[in-house]
């Protein structure tokens, strides 16, 4: 491939050992890449391990979570092997992160200005006036109205949308090469979500950042991402560029998600939900983890876990249907159930 990757995650495993016998394999052999200057969307439902993967990149997984295996190559260097002090130099500097809850992600007892300047002081050698200037510039950059006033305000004085802008300002303070956004708009109203997504897109183009956007919203993915990784029960089940994924999704889970989604832009007669529910982390199926819910599952699926295999257009899919070993009938996994 000619595209350079800013981040390559290889066979990452992040486990939570609750006690001797109970281990939650939240991230269990995840691999994907973030191409430089592009946006990768990570989609999946709760419990898919998408957020834990992102936190693993910054090595911010809380106890008892632990990266037990795999590599996280950032510009070719393995973050898993870095010392804590080296990681601290990367956090907030080369890789930044914004979170889902703007309401609780800012410290309530420090002013907005102080929280922005903190990042600047950690990573850059600035005198006070320079830091003040830069903080103000950042607030202007993220489009906050009357930025001078905001510097001395406290988070509780700002609306949810403005707080998320402040979070973005903090994240961008040191011109990161990679921005990880974990459900950045989930807690916001749609009109505010539209503002924030627009802002992230603009800034990405302006600052030549790569973005990793974690979301459960397929609409957000379609509009903002260049590539998509679909995760299910701790594994990537499909990876493709965004057009390919929405045009010809291959994994039955991806298809199930698309068919479950009630849409506002077209009239749909019927939703086709995925039956059953996500398996308990303590009782993961032996074979394909989606097999118990999959309408096409065969004996092979129940027994053996398929690999994530490359298809045409760089699409990758973890499903027996697309292999030579497939033991079932020929099936048509995806039929668009709506006309667009």
């Amino acid at each position: 491939m000619t595209v350079e990757n800013i981040l390559e995650i290889k066979n990452l495993k992040t486990y939570f050992s609750l006690d001797k016998d109970r281990v939650v394999k939240a991230v269990d052999g995840v691999s994907y890449v973030v191409p430089k200057g592009k946006t990768l969307g990570i989609v999946g439902e709760s419990g898919s391990g998408k957020s834990i993967t992102a936190l693993s990149v910054l090595r911010l997984v809380d106890e008892p979570g632990e990266i037990v295996d795999g590599e996280i190559l950032f510009k070719g260097e393995d973050l898993v092997k870095k010392k804590v002090s080296e990681m601290r130099k990367i956090r907030g500097n080369q890789i930044s992160m914004i979170f889902q809850e703007p309401m609780t992600s800012l410290n309530p007892v420090h002013s907005v200005g102080k929280q922005i300047k903190e990042t600047l002081h950690i990573h850059e050698d600035l005198i006070r006036q320079e830091a003040n200037h830069k903080a103000l510039d950042l607030l202007k950059l993220v489009g906050i109205p009357s930025p001078e006033k905001r510097l001395t305000q406290y988070p509780f004085e700002l609306s949810g949308g403005m707080r998320q802008r402040v979070m973005i300002a903090i994240a961008l303070a040191c011109n990161p090469e990679l921005l990880i956004a974990d459900e950045p708009t989930t807690a916001l109203d749609v009109t505010i979500q539209a503002q924030i997504l627009e802002l992230i897109k603009e800034l990405q183009a302006e600052l030549h950042m790569s973005v990793m956007l974690i979301t459960h919203d397929l609409g957000v993915v379609a509009e903002t991402c260049d590539f998509v990784a679909v995760m299910y029960a701790g594994k990537v089940v499909e990876y493709a560029d965004v057009d390919t994924l929405f045009e010809s999704p291959k994994h039955p889970y991806t298809v199930g998600l698309l068919n479950s989604l009630p849409r506002h832009d077209i009239k749909m007669e019927e939703l086709t939900p995925i039956k059953g529910m996500v398996p308990s982390p303590f009782e993961m199926p032996e074979g394909c983890r989606f097999a118990p819910r999959c309408p096409f599952a065969t004996a092979l699926c129940q027994e053996k876990l398929p690999d994530l295999e490359k298809k045409e257009n760089g699409q990758e899919v973890r499903c027996w249907i697309y292999t030579d070993e497939w033991d079932g009938e020929e099936v048509k996994v995806y039929e668009p159930n709506a006309t667009t």
Binding site: L58, L60, D62, R88, K89, I90, R91, G92, N93, S96, M97, F99, E101, T104, S105, L106, N107, P108, E118, T119, I122, H123, M167, I170
Partner: peptide, 15 residues
């Protein structure tokens, strides 16, 4: 310590 803003502080690279 389990609040979101503590995670934010760590994500900044704070000691």
């Amino acid at each position: 310590i389990s609040q979101d803003y503590i995670r934010t502080a760590r994500a900044k690279g704070t000691k």
